[in-house]
């Protein structure tokens, strides 16, 4: 069985339950561009897809084969840049602000303000914060459970920098690769996850 057939077969069973099976729309990007207009910093070029977005759209986020999975992770792992000074952990207090801030890059946001990471939209972090989302796994006691082995730190950095380096077609934005967060902001988020004094580990 060739892999493209397997992809199709999987899409058929994983597609929407109520779907009237849809024909793929040719040249969807052009159709979209005709139906949108620039709004401040949210410009039409944002509708262009990179290779990962294209693949994950085609697969409807269900990666069916290890070949494809490896293709996506390899491609994205190659983009990950470790911190210039080799230090993964910044200031957890600043990281808490990044984790709690949901604004940034929307047409309605002030481009002069730093972007947020919005971690709490999808993850449980500090046990004291009740208003957390559940799209992503709980990260409560993240550092307390894992310690600070260099391999653990490098993996977490990679997930924040580019989630698709280990989780192909993840729902999580690729914060470093797509320039959503600065290196310093990502270090601060890392400290929020790992620092023994961070509320995440209480």
């Amino acid at each position: 069985m060739n892999s493209s057939f397997r992809v199709t077969a999987l899409l058929l069973c994983m597609g929407p339950l109520v779907s009237v099976l849809a024909e793929p729309v040719p040249d969807l990007t052009a159709t979209l561009k005709a139906a949108f207009t620039d709004k401040r910093q949210a410009t039409l070029d944002r509708l262009d897809q990179d290779e990962t977005q294209k693949l994950c759209t085609q697969l409807r986020d269900q990666v069916p084969t290890s070949e494809l999975s490896q293709k996506i992770t390899r491609m994205n792992l190659a983009t990950v840049k470790p911190p210039a000074d080799g230090k993964y952990l910044g200031d957890w207090k600043a990281g808490e602000v990044v984790a709690s801030t949901g604004t940034g890059l929307q047409s309605s946001d002030d481009p002069a303000k730093p972007n947020g990471g919005n971690c709490y939209a999808c993850h449980e972090l500090a046990p004291t914060e009740m208003a957390y989302g559940t799209l992503g796994p709980s990260l409560k006691h993240y550092g307390k459970l894992r310690g600070q082995d260099p391999a653990v730190l490098a993996y977490a950095w990679s997930m924040v920098y580019n989630s698709n380096s280990y989780a192909p077609c993840s729902n999580m934005p690729r914060f470093g690769h797509r320039g959503i967060l600065t290196e310093q902001q990502m270090k601060d988020v890392m400290a929020y996850l790992f620092d023994a004094a961070s509320p995440v580990n209480q």
């Binding site: 929407p16 779907s19 849809a22 024909e23 793929p24 729309v25 969807l28 159709t31 979209l32 949210a42 944002r46 509708l47 262009d48 897809q49 990962t52 977005q53 994950c56 759209t57 409807r60 986020d61 890059l105 709490y120 939209a121 999808c122 208003a131 957390y132 989302g133 559940t134 799209l135 729902n171 934005p173 690729r174 797509r178 320039g179 959503i180």
Partner: peptide, 30 residues
């Protein structure tokens, strides 16, 4: 068919599609 394709179309700096938030049951944002 167009609507369904757009629903799964990932784009933008955050890689979001409609499906990112709306294709699993029992999930929350905050």
């Amino acid at each position: 068919a167009l609507g369904e394709s757009v629903f799964f179309y990932r784009a933008g700096p955050h890689d979001f599609a409609c499906a990112t938030c709306h294709s699993e049951s029992g999930k929350r944002i905050r």
